[in-house]
Design a protein around this nucleic acid. Structure first.
Lengths: 206, 206
DNA sequence: CGCTAATCTAGAACAAGTTTCAGACTGGGT
DNA sequence: ACCCAGTCTGAAACTTGTTCTAGATTAGCG
């Protein structure tokens, strides 16, 4: 069976190497954040030569973005198990993001490493960052509810929610905003989704 | 006259050094963005020893955040000259941010250097980043209009607008969003401000 | 099995941010 | 004018991300 995406069909050994690398990275990041992920140490810790590490992940940022993708996929799976419970779409999204935020609070160093890598990434990582971004969009859309294809207005709202989510995380990680502050920001931006669709829509201006 | 803030009263020569450093940094950043700002080159280009550069700005990120502060102060002054022309507060804020965005489009490399530094900054730079953040808040509040002390709801909206502003810039700089996309995001988030205050306020839920 | 191309390893080398240090210089107080 | 403390310089050293190279290993294939 050919791979689903454009992965060039890794052998079992290679798959195992890749996984060891990601695990070692996650462990180091959980200890001390972005700075604690040192390429030599990742290589040694995952039993791989430095050159091989760079063959699998062409930079530290690529590596950490891959870790973020991993974590997001886990979150997505967990959310499928226990979807948000609120009625209002906006509240469901806020609940979902707060759940993700609590996960980050449990591993603040890991969050630091992932989020700093994500926002520091330059154009050479844009494909990988885009994958992470699409995953995030999917998670938010899933949280919004069972609706069919989202409207352009909804997509704009989701984009802005994502912006706020990333930037609020950064201010929290750098100690410039409290946990309460992040909650408020999330709840504030989720108002853009508007109350549940059954209510009377107030006319969009222009 | 003692300095207004906690600046330890630099001599004229020191003030000149500081300014040369910032100018050299701005010039290098305009050429090639974050990566083109190399500390050795900044030092040489501003006629200062490397150690001195580090005495003035304890890291590359500190340096670039100081440049961003400089640029924001210039923008603030320019906005005082020609304030936004729209009637609606939300439109005024959007207009102001789009004006800033056009300035960034004129110097995309400089924008890259400043914004990447700002979002990559860790706790050791939080004081300086906070200054920049407060300046940004001031600019947005100024754009909103001549109103007195802003309400907590307005402050939340402004925070979210700032988040969106920074994050949208990043997606643009890393080539994952178009200029049009950024405009849409800015206009979308500015709706959080709501229509001008003269209209009937719809009751805040909870 | 034996061949070939691709992959992996160990280690050196390079690049740029940061630190350190000895000595020269400056500015303010006497 | 002189002296002290703080500042600046030039240069080397250190750190960590990244690249390179020569040789060993592995995978796929006839």
């Amino acid at each position: 069976m050919p791979p689903l995406v454009s992965a060039p069909a890794l052998t079992a050994r290679q798959e195992a190497r890749r996984r060891r690398i990601l695990q070692a990275t996650t462990r180091l990041a959980s200890r001390g954040g972005f700075d604690a992920v040192q390429m030599r140490e990742v290589a040694e810790s995952s039993g791989v030569a430095l050159g091989t590490l760079y063959r699998y992940f062409p930079s530290k940022v690529h590596l950490l973005v891959a870790v973020m993708r991993d974590q997001l996929e886990q979150l997505h799976a967990a959310l499928r198990e226990r979807p948000p419970t609120e009625d209002d779409p906006a509240a469901r999204v806020a609940q979902t993001l707060m759940r993700a935020f609590r996960a980050m609070q449990r591993e603040p160093h890991l969050a630091d490493a992932m989020v700093r890598a994500l926002t520091f990434a330059d154009r050479s990582v844009s494909a990988e960052v885009d994958t992470v971004s699409r995953l995030t969009t999917t998670i938010i859309l899933d949280a919004m509810g069972p609706a069919g294809p989202p409207t352009p207005a909804q997509l704009s709202a989701v984009r802005v929610i994502e912006h706020t989510w990333h930037s609020a995380l950064i201010t929290w990680l750098s100690g410039r905003a409290s946990i309460a502050q992040v909650r408020i920001d999330i709840e504030t931006v989720c108002r853009l989704i508007g109350p549940e669709p059954s209510r009377q829509a107030y006319s969009a201006r222009s």
